[in-house]
Design a binder for these strands. Structure first.
Length: 777
RNA sequence: GGGCCGGUGGUCUAGCGGCUAUGACGCCGCCCUUACGAGGCGGAGGUCGGGGGUUCGAGUCCCCCCCGGCCCA
């Protein structure tokens, strides 16, 4: 009869069954990348997650979506290179290490501090790797990358040496964002802004040669010793009479007055003090007005001897004291408490200062036009996401300061000749640590001296490492054979929040190395928010952690939720109730498969009945819609299409209609075979269609019923011969089912009780199946 | 202050000038029907962010504003 015990024994799908299938994947090495493959390659520039703190569910969902991209491309016939990396460089680990051991990095032996950082990273890394594996990420975890490995750092240094030779690197002394806590220069891209309370102090300035005085409002009275001018807006009628006048500051210094549009008439009194340097505007004004800056800050954020009696104090201390002093001398008109938009360090949130320092710069201003031309050569998903990058490119006005006065990062590979002082660079290819190692040469290339060298102690901005990920992953600098095959990565997946850093710097660096766009595809995702639409933060207590979700519902439920919640690119809200809802769908799919698994799959079929052709037509339509979503790396439509098809159409209508036929009681074997063949055909198509999104349950079912792995299959294709006129009757058919069920309920009949009811003439083709289902007499 | 994206029942979503605005999840009743940690039937719930305008007719086109997110100044 073709009917037996279900091949799927378990009555329910449970999360621990995912672990079984993961074990099989590991043993089989199911996702192994074969560099010798004849298939076209597709390589993904996996974002290396930072090894610190715990992952929350939004990060897990983000990575599961990236995994869906990899799986999609495999099922489209590509040989997919899906590396995995862990980001371990930079400030966060230093800050964490300082906190954990209650030490200060700069007062701690460098070598030992690095060791403490490494221990911390090794530990944090484990959590990320285990979550990623539990999610079913099909990346290569056996050969994962670390951004602090000798290999990676050697490539970072090699690309720097390359840039140096090409003239893209220079050293300059200029005012920069400076974090007094981390004691390092920061790039514009690393600056964040906070609304912080501060004091707005109204100070009295005398107008020289008159008895008049004017009031200047400032949030930075402690910079008064470095005040070099006062400005007002040319539109501001109150101050026209000040043109060309000299003011005397409360400290007795004489400063000129200028008209300048930067002065905001609405702020304070409309008169603005120009100091070196209160903010970015001051930097600009010193340049434009050709003023001579006076440096008032030390590297540790305290004031220097220029500040006179305030020397040695921190900015905050000096501010309080100077307000007090000036007030007692009658110079303070009033003090207001205001909320001020303050630049802070992206990592430690300390308010930044502007301090001139000698730093290495990588040229980017001169590349902006070429980079912008890449926007039209690269596919963005969603397409409007390219705006994020375009806007940033158009706002770039200065080069990238790449040197940092930190420890846990890639060292700048430069030695300075003790005789002539000039910089000497080693040959590329090795990892160099100039602060502790001797240079690989003993003669100065500039002056020929053999007096020895001083090693550079500074390190690179961590984005110098991250920005070459598509090169390092693919073999550049360590496996030429692989890199020749793969080139730079094909696709960059990342969040929208790091476009100005990771995406921009990558395009810049790869352009400088290869002279072409880093990627063909850029996939920018939205942010995962809590159920009320807020970002998840420790301080809000709204973080959902992944492990409890895995234990209750499994990775596939989390993944399916992540795919079905929102279209790609928009922010999405995460709630446990919805993950539970996804789990219910998996249950439904399991039971559908379990039901079908009791029937032998016929080797072929002679003739299909109208009901069979109808569902195959529906399947065609679902495949088409799902594939449109997959082609845009948007998993919303595929997930919802599969769910709707299985839950709303296939299970409640088709399966019910052909159940009797499939069982084969009182029916010709030909007709029974048609039903059984169709059931299996549809199930196989559905499993393949859903496999990238829910890889565990689909593979478990596939292996149990058909052998081999669903992940070695290609996507199902539509078939023209399934597009029959029966498809257009589907809606009527399902409406009629509901009508009969409703009528039986109204008449107090049980579902299998016989009923006398007219079948609409247009549904005559389905008459046999309808009569058997509803017991129509 | 500027840019980008979005704003359709609690949540997600269809809609892309034309009948009383889709569907799902969730919620509330009633029922039980051997693939089903399910299912069936019914129900509540929406000023389509607000205001103007174009049109015979607007979630749907135009303008202004408001709100949210991200980015920038």
């Amino acid at each position: 009869m073709g009917r037996s015990q279900p091949k799927l024994k378990e009555k329910h799908w449970t999360p621990d069954m995912e672990l079984e299938i993961q074990k099989v994947w590991e043993q089989e090495d199911t996702y192994r990348f074969n560099p010798e493959s004849e298939k076209p390659f597709f390589s993904i520039d996996t974002p290396p997650p930072y090894a610190s703190g715990k992952w929350h569910i939004a990060a897990a969902i983000h990575y599961s979506q990236i995994d869906m991209i990899a799986r999609t491309q495999r099922m489209k016939g590509y040989e997919v290179y899906f590396p995995f990396g862990i980001d371990r460089n930079g400030l966060p680990v230093e800050v964490e290490t300082e906190k954990r051991y209650n030490i200060k990095m700069l007062e701690y032996p460098r070598e030992e501090f690095l060791k403490l950082c490494k221990d911390f990273l090794d530990e944090a890394e484990k959590d990320i790797l285990s979550i990623s594996k539990r999610l079913g990420i099909s990346a290569d975890f056996k050969n994962y990358f670390q951004t602090d490995s000798d290999t990676w750092r050697a490539v970072t240094q090699a690309t720097f040496i390359d840039a140096w030779k090409k003239g893209y690197v220079y050293v300059d002394y200029r005012p920069n964002n400076y974090c007094p806590r981390c004691r390092t220069t920061l790039a514009d891209a690393e600056v964040e802004y906070r609304e912080l309370p501060t004091k707005l102090v109204y100070l009295k300035f005398k107008v020289e040669g008159t008895e008049d005085s004017v009031i200047v409002a400032t949030t930075r009275p402690e910079l008064l010793p470095a005040c070099k001018a006062v400005i007002y807006n040319p539109e501001d009628g109150r101050y026209g009479w000040l043109r060309g006048k000299i003011l005397t500051t409360p400290l007795g210094k004489h400063v000129p007055v200028y008209e300048h549009p930067y002065a905001n008439p609405e702020f304070g009194t409309g008169l603005v003090m120009v100091c070196s340097y209160g903010d970015k505007m001051d930097v600009q004004l010193f340049r434009e007005l050709n003023l001579e800056p006076t440096i008032i800050l030390n590297e540790d954020g305290t004031l220097n001897e220029v500040a006179g009696k305030y020397a040695g104090l921190t900015v905050a201390e000096a501010k309080e004291l100077i307000i007090e002093d000036l007030a007692s001398q009658g110079y303070v008109e009033k003090v207001e408490e205001i909320i001020h938009r303050t630049p802070v360090c992206w990592r430690c949130k300390t308010p930044l200062e502007i301090v001139p320092m000698k730093e290495f710069y990588l040229r980017q201003v001169e590349f902006v036009n070429e980079l912008e031309s890449y926007i039209s050569r690269v596919n963005f998903y969603p397409d409007w996401a390219s705006n994020y990058w375009r806007d940033w490119l158009r706002s770039i006005s200065s080069d990238w300061p790449i040197s940092r006065r930190r420890y846990y990062a890639t060292e700048i590979p430069v030695w300075y000749c003790k005789s002539c002082g000039k910089a000497a660079l080693p040959p590329p290819g090795k990892y160099y640590r100039p602060w502790k190692d001797d240079p690989p040469f003993d003669k100065c290339p500039h002056c020929g001296s053999t007096d020895g060298f001083e090693g550079e102690r500074r390190v690179f901005d961590t984005w110098m490492d991250s920005s070459i990920s598509p090169l390092v992953y693919n073999g550049y600098g360590w496996n030429d054979w692989l890199f020749t095959k793969l080139g730079s990565s094909d696709l960059r997946p990342q969040g929208k929040d790091i476009v100005r850093t990771w995406l921009h710097y990558t395009f810049l660096r790869v352009h400088q190395v290869l002279g072409e766009p880093a990627f063909r595809h850029v996939w920018i995702s939205g942010m995962g928010l809590d159920s009320r639409g807020r970002a998840m933060h420790k301080s809000l207590g709204n973080i959902i952690y992944p492990w409890p979700m895995f234990e209750k519902y499994g990775a596939d439920a989390v993944r399916f939720f992540g795919a079905s919640e929102a279209h790609h690119g928009s922010d999405f809200r995460i709630s446990e109730a919805k993950i539970e809802g996804s789990f219910k769908f998996l249950q439904k799919l399991w039971n559908v498969a379990r039901f079908i698994s009791q029937f032998e799959e016929p080797g072929g079929v002679e003739e299909l009945l109208p009901t069979d052709l109808w569902i195959l037509g529906e399947l065609n339509r679902s495949i088409e819609r799902a594939m449109t979503g997959y082609s845009k790396f948007d998993f919303f439509d595929p997930a919802n299409e599969v769910r709707t098809f299985v839950w709303e159409v296939f299970a409640p209508h088709y399966i019910e209609l052909v159940k009797a036929r499939a069982y084969g009681d009182d029916i010709s074997s030909k007709e029974s075979e048609a039903a059984r063949w169709t059931l299996h055909y549809v199930l196989k198509a559905i499993l393949r269609l859903a496999a990238p999104i829910i890889p565990h349950i689909t593979d478990y079912i596939w292996r149990s019923l058909y052998g081999g792995s669903v992940h070695k299959e290609l996507f199902p294709e539509t078939r023209e011969d399934w597009n029959t006129p029966y498809l257009s009757l589907g809606e009527k058919l399902m409406e009629f089912d509901s009508f009969v069920w409703k009528t039986k309920k109204e008449r107090g009949l049980k579902m299998k009780d016989p009923i006398s009811i007219d079948i609409p003439s247009e549904l005559k083709p389905f008459e046999g199946d309808l009569r058997r289902l509803h017991n129509i007499i």
